[in-house]
């Protein structure tokens, strides 16, 4: 790999670029959001990946799945393989582990990651991912978009980028996850149908998440010193700190105590 390649991002510093190259990054979900992230990480210089997605590229994905082309739909390419191909196209020497399954079926490689991106569909999936990352001391970056429509009003497009740091406020502390939301989601399980997903908010959210990750690893801005909860509003094209984070005054996270790390211990009775 030539240094020429990173000439235009030399402000990250030699050690910053080196840390990026050393970081083992986990990607859970390689759809509209995760595909964008994979591609950008490859360009930034990430070299070590653990990827999970059980799905194959389908025609209905092509409105947003930047890692796939029509031939992948015809061939039924697994999304993890489409992502791997794109990463290796940019970084031929990268190590990409692909798991065409839910991460819960092969959790060990995920636990080994230094940083995990979650690009999953449900609140329940997010809760499980964050819990795993807390247990194994891994920073977790969550992205997602949604579209809400009430009556005759135009739809409201929203999204979030959250950085959940072990020992800091979790997604429950920040009010993004609530028992009520999880309960409502569980109640409508199976009846939800496909939520709206489009390429441009995915791109904004993925870019923002990659920016957070690069800053976290290189400290180039020297200003990222606490949790991130950014709210995206597609209708006016803004990404702003979420009011819940701005007004967050909580202390230690009560949901993930600091001694509950490592493999769970089973006490003998």
């Amino acid at each position: 790999m030539t240094n020429e390649r990173f000439l235009r991002q030399s402000f990250l510093g030699e050690s910053g670029q080196e840390v990026i190259g050393r970081c083992l990054v986990g990607l859970v979900g390689l759809g509209g959001g995760g595909g964008h992230i994979a591609l950008q990480l490859a360009h930034v210089g990430f070299m070590n990946y653990v990827t999970y997605d059980a799905d194959f590229a389908e025609d209905s994905n092509l409105n947003r799945l930047v890692i796939a082309i029509e031939a992948d739909v015809a061939a039924g390419t697994p999304k993890v393989e489409a992502a791997k191909r794109r990463i290796l196209g940019v970084r031929g020497a990268a190590h990409v582990e692909t798991y065409r399954c839910r991460w819960q079926e092969r959790p060990e490689p995920l636990r080994a990651c230094d940083l995990v991106f979650g690009c999953v569909d449900s609140f329940a999936e997010r809760r499980e991912l964050e819990a795993c990352c807390r247990r194994y001391l891994i920073p977790y970056i969550d992205i997602g978009m949604d579209l809400h429509q009430a009556g005759d009003e135009p739809p409201v497009m929203g999204g979030q980028v959250i950085l959940s740091m072990p020992n800091g406020p979790c997604m429950f502390c920040l009010g993004y996850l609530t028992e009520e939301k999880l309960g409502r989601e569980a109640a409508r399980y199976g009846a939800a149908g496909g939520r709206p997903q489009v390429v441009w908010p995915n791109g904004v959210l993925a870019s923002t998440a990659v920016g957070v990750a690069v800053d976290l690893l290189t400290d180039w801005s020297r200003s990222l010193r606490g949790p991130v909860y950014l709210a995206y509003r597609g209708n006016d094209g803004t990404v702003v700190p979420h009011p819940r984070l701005v007004h967050f005054r909580g202390g230690a996270c009560p949901h993930y105590p600091p001694d509950q790390v490592g493999d769970p211990l089973f006490k003998r009775l």
């Binding site: 060990e108 636990r111 080994a112 001391l137 790390v261 490592g262 493999d263």
Partner: peptide
Amino acid sequence: FARLGNVGTAAPLVCFTA
């Protein structure tokens, strides 16, 4: 002081607590 993760795999994790 530390707890272990990924016990029994080729990539064990040592998570320090205190």
